[in-house]
Structures are given as C-alpha cells and as structure tokens.
Design a protein around this nucleic acid. Structure first.
Length: 443
RNA sequence: GACCCCAUCGUCUAGUCUGGUCCAGGACCCCAGCUUUUCAAGCUGGUAACGCGGGUUCAAAUCCCGCUGGGGUCGCCA
C-alpha cells in the first residue's frame, strides 16, 4: 500500500511551491489508491504559528486536497527523545550538553531517486566548517566530519531526525518533495542506518522558479496560495496549472481536472528540470475554467466580491446581473478582472481611462453626440438590436463610419477604451443611464 | 569555493528509458489575416528550440565523455 505525505512547516502561509509538492503527493497517493498523510512540522516553536497552520489546512482544502491522516510533530517529542536515547545507549550517538549528535563516519551513500535515478554522496564531504564556511582543521591539519544534530541544545528534535523517524513510523512508502531536499537525503539515510529502519523511496521534484529564473520569493509577487484565491483564481485552475509544471498528461492536453489527472498520473513521468512560473499561462488556464462555468456559477463565485465592493445588494436583479456576467465571463482571466471591467454598470463613480477620454471625448463631437442622444431617447424598446439599428442609422445619416463614433460612445458610457459588444452594454445599462451619460460626457 | 541536480521554441512541455516514423509536435506569449463595432473574445495562419565540442553507430534530440550555462545545498530553520 502506497503512503505519501506532505509535510509543511507552519512558519508561513502555504507557498505555491509547497502546494505543488502537496499536489504531486496527493496525485500519486490517489492514483495508487494509497494513503495521503498531512504532517505539520511544527518543531520550531518560535516561528510556528497557529494562524499559519490554519491557513495551510484551509488552503489545502480549498485546492481540493483531502488527507487521510493528520499529525503534529509537537505531539511526538517524547518519541524522538526515546529514539535519541536508544542511539546514545547503543553508542551511535552522544550528548553534547543538552544536544544529541549522531556520529558520522566516512562512507558512500547511494540513494535511488525515482525521478533522477541513482545519486551518490560521500559523507567525507560532510565536513565541519566555521562561520565563514571555511573547513575547521584539527591539530594535524585535517578536515573533520560534521556529526549530525539529532536533538538541539534547547531539547527540541532536529528536522532530519523527526523526518526520518516519522516517515518510518507512519510507514510512508514514498517521499515526494522538492529538489532542495536532495542534500538532506543522505543525512536521513544515515539516521535510518543507525536506527536500523528501512528508508522510504524518494522522488525529488524540480523546483519552480520566478519569471527571471531566480527563486520564487516575495519579490515575485503572489507566492501564497491565499493570494491567488484573493485575486480571483479558481482552485481547479490553480491545481491544473501547477500540475502542468513538471508533468504532462500527454495527448497535448492542457486542461485537466484533478480527477482525470489521478487516472493518468505517474511519478516516473515527472520532469527533472526546474520550471519557470508563468502568470500568462495561469491566467489562460483560469480563463478556460471560467468559460466552462455557467452564468449562475460565476455569479455565485462573484457574489462576495460584488457585495463588498457595494456593487450589488440583496435587491439586485439577478437576471440583469446574469446578462453582465454572460457578456464578460468569456473574456476575463480572473474574478477580479470582472470587477475592474464592469464597475460602470454598478456605479456612476466608475474609473475613467483618461487617455481614452482625452482622445475620444472631443468637443467637436458635441453636436453629433446630442443628435445621437435624441435618437436614443426615441428608441421604444431599448434592446441591443434596436440600439445597434438606431446607432447605424445615425452614423449613416451623418456620413460617418461606425468606428468614428463607437470609440467615443464607449468611453462616454463605460469610461473604458475596450470591452465587449457596446450595444449589449448599452441595453444592459438601460436607456435612462445611456442618455444621462451621453449628456454629461460633453457638457 | 565544496558537494549535488539539471539542460528541446522567450515560457510550460511531447519525444529521451526501448537510437531511425522528428529538417522535432502541442500550449502560453508574440505577430499577421479574417470576422466584428473597439478588443482584451472567436476563427485561421505565422515566427520561434534539440547550449557547445568530441565520441559510439549505417543512423543521435535520444547513448557516452568533456565543456559551458543554470539551479540547489552547505543552520542546533524546516
């Protein structure tokens, strides 16, 4: 039975890279009909925060990853101590003040990585260094091996020790984690050897880099999963994009649900080179998911945002809102885009593109605008078709091209230089507001 | 610096294990055309890659070696 785990440390929000690691573990566990374990590595009591832990759990749920078992390392401190004492008694580890260190000898350690194949380490390279990273030499001028810290001076267990013991006792069969952990692996193997426990199988995932090829960091912008939620990305779309970073379902497929990915996922097919995070592609994936949603579903997703903006309230006509959503849902990338592009429907205090206004709202159009206003006022049923018909008649009568007037009209009605069908916009806006805005636009 | 990992279009990738079907396929981005009322939508098309040098072989993106380049680790953080 396959058992995989995701082991975040609650010293920060769930990072986009962490989410991808979690996702690959989840995909693998589910694909193998195995068990997915979530283990909170909260041994650093100073930096670990309850709010981070809660945020990690809720982000995991939001992304649709459910776990079968949940552990906290702080609940297991006695266990780690017990094993440390055992190693001391066996003469494999020793006390240094309150700390416990594992004796490291020169040896070759081979690990087999499912993604990369065999990786060999020589522990004679694990040498003691001073604060300037210079090797510390003994009296004879030789470098010295650095023993592995098992228990720290404050009595708390060290990362690799907990990790090795937990993976063994929880019977984790596959450790799938970031490439940055490759160099921790031989240390953990050393611990397994000392403990006489069988190490799990390893798969080290390639890292995700920022657009400039450097590490994903705060400078990159949004790194927390919750940031993406806030910006209006859908969890399925984020999952989809994240799994495409280092894995491909084949058949040139780009859009795939978690359920289908589980059917196709193979850890062996995971790529071994780092991938750069592309906001453009994420936006595209998200827009694809938005397109697939029904108008009602998008309204539901949008509701909270629209309310907090004061754009809608309980009295808002849902059919009217549906028309707006229908007009825009095919062309937005995120839910927040919708708010930006449609503000003029909901308030007269909408944002005006000043460049566009200056370019198109010129005084020489005053007469034309006032004629157009009269025509619009005379429309009986203010439908998109009738608005279009009226507009075109006027344009022809004035011996103009549609595009001569459509831009100014758009800016006058929406404050924007771009958007979907203007006649549909006008119809949704309604005759009264269209006329008002036209009159106000060129005083 | 030491150790380790990696290397196909600008980006994500297919192909690499099991060499020939690949003068390298798809997607994002970008560009052009069409449509349209503008486009940031839709449709059609286009530009664009096997890092370099050596081998092995009848044949190499695929195997081997070297170089170069990128990344990771070097905490009593996780």
């Amino acid at each position: 039975m396959v058992k995989a785990r995701f082991a975040p440390s609650p010293t920060g929000f769930l990072h986009i890279g962490g989410a991808r690691t979690a996702l690959f573990n989840y995909l693998y566990a589910r694909a193998q009909k195995g068990v997915f374990v979530l283990r909170i590595e909260d041994t650093d009591r100073v930096r670990s925060k309850k709010e981070y832990e809660e945020e990690i759990l809720s982000s995991m749920k939001w992304l649709g990853m459910d776990w079968d078992e949940l552990y906290y390392q702080t609940d297991r401190f006695d266990l780690y101590k017990e094993y440390a004492e055992k190693l001391i008694n066996e003469g494999k580890a020793y006390k240094d003040g309150e700390a416990v260190l594992l004796k490291v000898n020169s040896e070759e350690i081979k690990i087999y990585d499912i993604i990369r194949g065999e990786i060999t380490f020589d522990t004679s390279n694990f040498i003691l260094r001073d604060e300037n990273n210079k090797p510390v030499l003994d009296k004879e001028g030789n470098t010295q091996l650095k023993d592995e810290v098992l228990i720290k001076s404050d009595g708390s267990p060290a990362y690799s020790f907990c990790c090795a013991i937990d993976d063994a006792l929880m019977e984790i069969t596959h450790v799938i984690r970031g490439e940055d952990h490759i160099s921790n692996t031989p240390k953990q193997i050393l611990i397994y050897q000392a403990l006489g426990l069988k190490p799990p199988k390893y798969a080290h995932l390639p890292l995700i880099m920022g657009e400039d090829g450097s590490r994903l960091s705060k400078r990159f912008g949004a790194v927390a999963v919750s940031d993406y939620k806030l910006k209006g990305y859908l969890p399925d779309a984020l999952d989809n994009y994240l799994m495409l970073l280092g894995w491909s379902p084949g058949n040139n497929q780009e859009i795939i649900t978690i359920e289908n990915a589980i059917k196709k996922f193979s850890i062996k097919k995971v790529n071994n080179s780092a991938a750069i995070f592309s906001m453009d592609k994420l936006n595209w994936v998200n827009s694809e998911y938005l397109k697939q949603k029904s108008v009602d579903q998008v309204i539901e997703l949008l509701e909270e945002r629209l309310k907090s903006k004061g754009f809608i309230d309980d009295d808002t006509d849902n059919d009217w809102l549906g028309k707006i959503v229908d007009l825009y849902k095919g062309r937005i990338s995120t839910l927040n885009d919708f708010l930006e592009w449609t503000d003029f429907f909901f308030t007269d205090n909408y944002e005006v593109d000043q460049d566009a206004a200056q370019k198109h709202l010129v005084t020489k159009l005053k007469d034309v605008f006032s004629q157009l206003t009269d025509s619009f006022e005379g429309v009986e049923t203010f439908s998109a078709e009738n608005v279009e018909k009226t507009f075109k008649e006027k344009v022809t009568a004035l011996q103009l091209k549609s595009s001569d007037l459509i831009h100014p009209l758009r800016v006058a009605l929406t404050g924007k230089a771009v958007g979907p069908s203007l006649f549909h916009i006008a119809a949704i806006l309604g005759q009264k507001r269209v006329v008002e805005r036209l009159k106000k636009s060129l005083p």
